[in-house]
Design a protein around this nucleic acid. Sequence first.
DNA 1: CGCTCATTTGATTGTTATCAAAAGAAGTGG
DNA 2: CCACTTCTTTTGATAACAATCAAATGAGCG
Lengths: 258, 258
Amino acid sequence: MISLTQHPMAPSDLLRQRWEAITGGELDGVLERLSLNGVRRTVPANSELWSGLGGAPDSLLLVSGVVGETRLLVDGRRQILSLRLPGEVLQRDGQETLTTLTSAAVVDAIPLIRALGDRAEMQALRRAWVAAARADQAMMRDQIVRLGRLSAFERMAHLLVETHERLFHVGLATPSAFQLPVRQEVVADLLGMSVVHVSRVTQQLRRERLAQTRSSYVTLMDRERLCELSSYASRFAVTPSAARLAVSIARPQAARAS
Amino acid sequence: MISLTQHPMAPSDLLRQRWEAITGGELDGVLERLSLNGVRRTVPANSELWSGLGGAPDSLLLVSGVVGETRLLVDGRRQILSLRLPGEVLQRDGQETLTTLTSAAVVDAIPLIRALGDRAEMQALRRAWVAAARADQAMMRDQIVRLGRLSAFERMAHLLVETHERLFHVGLATPSAFQLPVRQEVVADLLGMSVVHVSRVTQQLRRERLAQTRSSYVTLMDRERLCELSSYASRFAVTPSAARLAVSIARPQAARAS
DNA sequence: CGCTCATTTGATTGTTATCAAAAGAAGTGG
DNA sequence: CCACTTCTTTTGATAACAATCAAATGAGCG
């Protein structure tokens, strides 16, 4: 599998893979014409996205790394509202703070936003945009359910499966493993638990042969059961390209032969 | 104060008050021309909004009553993602279920949605719509923080202040009291706690002279402290009309005199 | 090798859930 | 209007879950 913070994929490819996964349709060619593969800015870990990046546009496409939408309480407690992963569009929003949790790379997404406003045949693009917004909202709802009604164990399981799926659909995971280069403290602040408890649950997942974490690499040993026990519902459609990808990973020789 | 489930306000007035509170601008006349004050459908308590209402349009304006966006887990656990209050627009969305938590009344909001698409001078309307969507999202984020990083006590405080503010801005609360005609079970499922604990926290709030609940009427005895202890941040601007309203409630004779 | 930072472990405490039962409200029909 | 039912809230006792504290171990890095 490819490194999350350093991979060779083109920004437009990332976006296309994600949007195709969300809409279930194909989006060939449209994104490639938008000059998203231009200047790539790198942001160090633990910096605030808009202030750390002098004169950045209001819309960025995250190319690599992990970003967290975070809120700080006066007494120092922190809640990470959501994780943002490669292939997602980040928008400036007065209220919230986007913090890089690893080093990250972004490209200007203004061309994309402008294309959405075009009267021209950007219909497919607009549909995908709306679908992506819906998917984001659905993930926020998942996060509410996670925090409100799932146990710590279930929460971790749910997060792992969700993150795997999100990364898989942009080509950043194998069918059963992915990279999550964040400290347990981050997972704690995302799932509303303490660092110590994250450590314990992580071990419980390993003991029960459900998932294994070795220095930022996560292996889902029993994805089926993880979904079940956390009532995980997939947010993604099966796309032609995803299906091809899945096959090529599962049976590399068969895919090569065809 | 006026009853939440039965009040004499016109749908367009409700919507205008809410939107003005959110945007901070005035929206005079525009909404009144949209024929929102037409057929009013009543929905009994505890029914699913779209299926319980034969052939309803995809967008409804909630006029009275309380609706909950709910998710059920297989084992019977329930999470209420958000409360929807009068003056808010409800949209059909495959994923989620909207359940009436009290009897409710709605009107068709399709004219409104159509007006948004108009090329004409609906600019102010569109701005308000976008601002309202932003506000909804902000409330979802608040809910995440509540569930993830606030204690049960803080959660209740936060919810009470938020609900008060939302109702106040549509004229359904006095400066310190409002009606919340839902069982404690609903509050429990909204805040991710057990019914028993809701009862206990309710009493603690009363003991500490912060808030008082008597058969679905909530009185905020110390709004200041409630905000502080729950790190509540207001989502509303102070509008001219809200200021007028506040004055007229605080000093009825002065307002009458002017 | 020695430093720092992250994770793990053990012990303890605190918060909240669960269970069971009582008390209080609110309707229903005589 | 009262007995009766049913639903909701409250209370007390106990258990489960997760936080906190403190210390040890491990990993990465100059």
